[in-house]
Amino acid sequence: MIRTDKHLIACFVFAAAATATGLLVENAYYLQVMIFIGINTLLALSLNMLMGYAGQISLGHAAFYGIGAYTTAILSTTYNISPWLALPAAVFTAMAIAYFVGRPTLRLTGYYLAMGTLGFGIIVNIIFREWRSVTGGASGFVGIPPLEIGSFAFDTDRRYFFLVWGVVLFFFIICRRIIDSRVGRALRAIHDGEHAAAAVGVDTAKMKLKIFVLSAAMASLAGFLYAHQIFFISPGTFSFLASIRIVTMVVIGGMASIWGSLLGASLLTLLPEWLHAFADYEMMIYGLVLMLVMIFLPQGLTRGILDIYENSRKKNDK
């Protein structure tokens, strides 16, 4: 329980910092970069629940991100339904699909699970591209409306910043609750050894499915936020490469770490912005940074930085 309290304090400090940032930063570009960090953090967190805590890899996570974005786009633009009604529909669609896909897929393990989820992600992406009458095809879906509550519209970057980070904060707290609960302990048991977990009475199949569905719900929410920020979506955003990018965020940030998702998402969102100056060398440097982080900090940035900090403290104590 002490751990939860500590986490709440950290969340509070973080919320204060985020509010201050949101109020002080004037430049729309910086605000927008931070909005994307928020959306990516939500994505990384959703996958981290599945990968870091339950130990189930997914190389098709962008599919749920896309399902969230496309569902709200279609409902709110084509059918003129309020985005707030489209939101539960989007989340529910993703959850239902996750349920039906998860049942057979989560029986797989290791690289076969990776392959199964990858195949699922690719099929969903092809549907986005080929179901042209509904999704707009490869050219994309235009004209998605902004979010509004009554006459208050989330149409400026500052307002959207607060919306996105509010959602992220909410899930920081929720996810910590889940991890510290019975479910969380069961998940970690599955991570450490599925047979052992089953032997002590954990219904492993049900647990894995539950966390998969939750993870899909969070990813589709991120897709919802993305669609109403950019007002345009196209299949490329939710491709196989996007799935890989989310996995990278989780691993670089630190598996089984809530703050790691934030760190990983921040680094991988900011890195391309910084590397602009290198022009044609950008790709090489980006790849090199990924490799170096993993070689020297294989447990991700959070753990790695903590280790360095603790080591230096030990040194000072001596």
């Binding site: 090489m284 980006y286 990924l290």
Partner: peptide, 19 residues
């Protein structure tokens, strides 16, 4: 050398080599 770490390293290598 856990599998997932090595996977991300090879993903990084693929981006590096493509560049």
């Amino acid at each position: 050398p856990e599998p997932i770490v090595l996977i991300i390293i090879t993903v990084g290598a693929s981006i590096f080599l493509r560049g």
